[in-house]
Each structure stands twice: as C-alpha cells, then as structure tokens.
C-alpha cells in the first residue's frame, strides 16, 4: 500500500461512511493501513488532520496522528509536525503541563496530547460494544479493560474529549437523576451567531464545583459549534429558594447523541458564589429532610426566627 493509499484508507475509515472498524486483534489489517515510515506523506497526514479537526472531529484527527506516529521509527520529523499541529513546543514530557490551546482538546488536552506523542503509551482500539457503537477506546496502559482506572476512552468520533477525566468513570456512588432545569446563556460568539446563545438544559449532576447538563437541541443551534472551552452563564432554580442562582461556568467536555438530538456536557463553575454552594448543599447534602422539618415547624409551631 502506498502512503497516499494508506491516508485514503484512513480517510475512508474515519469518514463515518465505512463499516465500523474492527481492529482489535487484527494486526494484519492494521499493518496494511500503516505505510512504510520513510515514505509516509507527512503533508497528506497534515491535510487529513486539518480536515478532520476543521470539522470538529478531534478524536478522529488524533487517531490519524496516532497511526502516523506509530509508523515511524525515527519519529523526529513527525513529532515536529505534530508539534506544529498541536501548537505545542516539544520538550520533556510532563503531563502536568498544559501546552495545547483550550480550543483544541478541552480540559484533558495535556494527557491526550502527550499520549499522541508517546506512542508506546497509547493504543487506539475500537470498542467491542462495552462503550456503545462507534466508540473508540484509547488506552494509556498495557492492559485493556474497562476496570482499569488508567484507561482513557473516547466516545465516538463526535466526542471532543473524554477519558478518565469523565467523572462517571471515577464515581463510587451511583448518582440519581436530578429533576432540575437550568437556563443557559452561551457567552460570546459561537458559530454564525454573534450574541449569546440561550437554551434550557436538564441538570443531571450537580456539585458545588460543577454540573452535568443535557441539552435537547431540536433546532440544531449547537450543531457544529466548538463548545469545549466556551463560557456560559447558568441560572439554576433550586427548590426552596425563590430566586434562581446564577454563575459562570466553562464547558469541559461534550458528547452528542444524534438519535435524540441531545448534547451532554460537563461544566466547571469558575467562581461559584457562596449562595450557590449553600444552595447546592441544601439540595444534595441531605437537606430535603431539613426543608420538610422547617415546613412542619412553620405550620405547627408557627415561627422560624
């Protein structure tokens, strides 16, 4: 297979029109897709990555980078290219650094960027069904399996970032669905619209530091927007409080579901006011009973000083 043919094969593989890739254990096919190192068309890789990233398919772009990286024994030229693409300066790997612009990878960008550059530490394998259709799994360890805490798994090619940073992978306590809605204003220009984009979201998770939201985007207002890293204002109505509580947050990750036309997103509160922390505490810190206690005190005893 020629380098350009390999890139075309990648393009086809990642275009979403091909069959679901099945690489796990299929070393022969993987090798067939990897061109000879010296002949790799770096400009072709670059163009494909640019194209994919330009369509917001960052994981697919990363997959290409990973595959290209894996083909070259002496990877200095490719690393230079990767550095340019990722807009980072090559240096000693330090996962605590955060060299990638936030527009690119979201809050987990250092881990993913370094994973791309450290080929021995990264594997991309297709999901066999454990994580849903069309999902890709990126492992940062040698062992594979969802029980490994150091697994980073990436949901589908529409997912912007994921991995062990997704809170669901770390929870020990099962969360229940919250019956809360929040009014959201996406701040700053987003796509063709210059003003704030407003929508209502269902709050699925809530702590004093952040929230998980689901937005049903019936009018495709969020479709194609680069959401990760965007700021939003969230106004949350908490039961028992007459006024909604407002705070500014930053979108850390998103995940789309074309079937339901919904977008799930994780939001980190930037400077949550004290009243939000109190409100959240009232809501989640077992305060349903205290609200009931006060309602009984008010109705039976008749005062609450």
């Amino acid at each position: 297979m020629t380098p350009s043919a390999a890139i075309e094969a990648w393009r086809s593989l990642l275009s979403g029109t091909s069959d679901r890739p099945s690489w796990r254990g299929d070393t022969a096919r993987r090798r067939a897709l990897l061109p000879v190192a010296d002949e790799l068309d770096l400009l072709g890789v670059s163009a494909l990555v640019d194209e994919l990233a330009g369509r917001g398919r960052y994981i697919a772009a990363l997959a290409v980078l990973r595959m290209a990286n894996a083909t070259i024994d002496s990877s200095a030229p490719l690393k230079k290219l990767l550095s340019e693409l990722l807009a980072i300066t090559p240096r000693e790997a330090d996962p605590s650094d955060d060299p990638v612009p936030s527009e690119f990878l979201g809050s987990h960008r250092p881990a993913i960027a370094w994973s791309v550059l450290e080929r021995d530490r990264l594997e991309i394998v297709p999901n066999d069904g454990d994580f849903g259709r069309n999902s890709w799994v990126i492992s940062t360890g040698l062992d594979r399996g969802p029980s490994r805490l150091d697994w980073a798994f990436l949901w589908g090619s529409d997912t912007e970032v994921a991995g062990k940073l997704r809170p669901a992978g770390r929870r020990k306590v099962t969360r229940r669905k919250l019956e809360l809605t929040a009014a959201i204003a996406l701040l700053g220009p987003a796509g063709p619209r210059q003003g704030a984009t407003r929508f209502t979201a269902q709050v699925t998770d809530l702590t004093a530091r952040g929230a998980g939201l689901v937005v049903v985007d019936r009018f495709d207002r969020l479709y194609g927007l680069q959401l990760v890293g965007k700021k939003l204002r969230l106004s949350l109505g908490i039961p028992g409080r007459t006024e909604p509580i407002s705070t500014i947050g930053e979108i850390c990750w998103t995940e789309g579901d074309e079937t339901t036309r919904s977008t799930q997103m994780g939001v980190r509160f930037l400077d949550p006011p004290a009243e939000l922390q109190e409100g959240v505490a009232e809501l989640i810190d077992g305060r349903r009973d205290v609200q009931y206690l006060w309602s009984l005190v008010e109705s039976h005893v008749g005062r609450r000083s």
Binding site: V173, R175, V280, R287
Partner: peptide, 17 residues
C-alpha cells in the same frame, strides 16, 4: 464501607432517606 464518608455522601444523588 466508604458509602457514608463525607466526600461520598455529599455528592449529588447521594441517598437522603
């Protein structure tokens, strides 16, 4: 054994009753 640790118990959706 850690279900009622403060950090766990203060999470959203933690049991309230």
């Amino acid at each position: 054994k850690n279900l009622l640790d403060p950090g766990q118990f203060r999470e959203a959706g933690a049991p309230q009753t």
